[in-house]
Design a protein around this nucleic acid. Structure first.
Lengths: 247, 247
DNA sequence: CCAAAAGTGTTGAAGTTACACCCATGC
DNA sequence: GCATGGGTGTAACTTCAACACTTTTGG
């Protein structure tokens, strides 16, 4: 009986994931679609689900992430807890919960996570909480289900702060990338233009990039050199952190 | 019936508060004492309690804080969620929960908060979860109940990061304070020595301090000038934040 | 040859670190 | 008069922001 209780869903605690991607132009976020016509206005939501009583919070977030994207072992960090008593104020949200949860009226606290993935690694999966899912441009999102819009804003702020201090941005790029792509990534996360020459100088000085001495092919302009991380140095800096990248 | 349910304690979600103080020498934290002899080893714990279903997380944290210290409207910020399924692994913790909770075996996720108070404002109160409470030197704490030691470490890190970026340290000082006290505060939070002259120069340049043109009395050395905040400028900077204080 | 993005250095200003001595008070 | 912490300035160095032109490719 205790055993059984331990592996049940906890009706009061969920995790929601803000999964960021980068389409080489703009920051994107993975949203689930709650279905056409039925929930007008805020049809889209962050992926998430209730936790099981026998898993910890990080495990629950990884489970949601893997169920949706098929990915595991990717960058994942807790953002914080959300959950006003009046979080479920929209009628459409209430209806949706009735369709997917055993106790749709329960007070739910959600623990939000931020994840960074390479878009190219993502293979869409149907999952227990989403018929369909897809990438949306972060800058074009103005409304989401529940308090998910607020969570997204907090996630953006956290990413902004963190990318200045730790070299986590690389999690959003493919293995081989150009300095211009990295530059564009920083600009779209920080939401401001960065001087090209200063950016290159700074990022190269960190010593976390290896020049592959290989060039882009098939581009209608001067081809760029490709880089990858220096994994060892990257891990070193990920742990110690910087005082400030200076951006 | 719905109404009743809404104002009940939620058995699965609690808040715990890491309440920092500063005794003019060292960083301190407010701990509750679970009683002599009964719980050896980790007698001390962070103050905290289950949340009510009709209050939000910030309200719950404020309630715990006020119940314990009699203070409200003080600096309070969410740290994050904690709660492995095996969080209650020590027998002494289990026993204690049996004595204070209706469902002592329930899986509990706790939302940790960090609070900064002036020690002189603190008047001890008995409370629903503590017979007695008191300040402990942070650097002398090596063990706490549940996962509270881990939470304390996370709170220290958060405070370190935050104090470099926002002028929140003042919440730990009395209204009138000396630059040396502020200097000592920064040193004990950052846990490293800071050059006196450079510290003074930097902090004064921010323009958030007003020189009261008033001196310490009764000290056996050259009396120091007293300062207070420039409240307006302080609020201004609290909101915008700095890129970096540079410490 | 044109369009498009890649790549590259210098300069002036600001900020950072390191460092040593005299001052005012209580005892 | 001595012990204690308060208060002050400078020089060398590093970092930062601003800024424009040439190069290589595809079409």
């Amino acid at each position: 009986m205790l055993k059984k209780n331990q592996s049940e869903l906890n009706p009061n605690v969920s995790v929601d994931c803000v999964i960021f991607g980068f389409d080489m132009e703009n920051l994107t976020v993975l949203l689930i679609d709650r279905g056409k016509n039925k929930y007008p206005g805020s049809r889209m939501a962050l992926p998430g689900n209730l936790i099981y009583n026998d898993e910890n919070l990080d495990e629950a977030a990884n489970r949601v992430l893997e169920e949706l994207t098929g990915l595991n072992n990717i960058y994942l960090e807790q953002l914080g807890a959300f959950g006003d008593p009046n979080r479920i104020c929209k009628e459409s949200d209430r209806e949706w919960l009735k369709s997917i949860r055993a106790e749709p009226e329960a007070r739910v606290i959600t623990i939000a996570y931020v994840s960074l993935v390479q878009i190219s690694d993502y293979t869409p999966h149907a999952s227990s909480f989403a018929q369909s899912a897809g990438w949306a441009l972060v800058k074009e999102i103005h409304e989401l289900a529940f308090d998910h819009y607020e969570i997204l804003q907090a996630a953006k702020e956290k990413l902004k702060e963190k990318i200045k201090i730790q070299p986590i941005g690389f999690n959003l790029l493919p293995e081989k990338f150009t300095l211009s792509q990295l530059h564009r990534l920083y600009e779209s996360v920080l939401d401001k233009p960065l001087d090209k020459r200063n950016f290159r100088r700074k990022i190269l000085k960190l010593g976390i990039l290896t020049n592959l001495k290989e060039k882009q092919k098939g581009v209608p302009h001067k081809p760029s050199e490709l880089y990858k991380f220096n994994e060892e140095r990257y891990l070193e800096l990920s742990q110690t952190g910087y005082d400030n990248f200076g951006f």
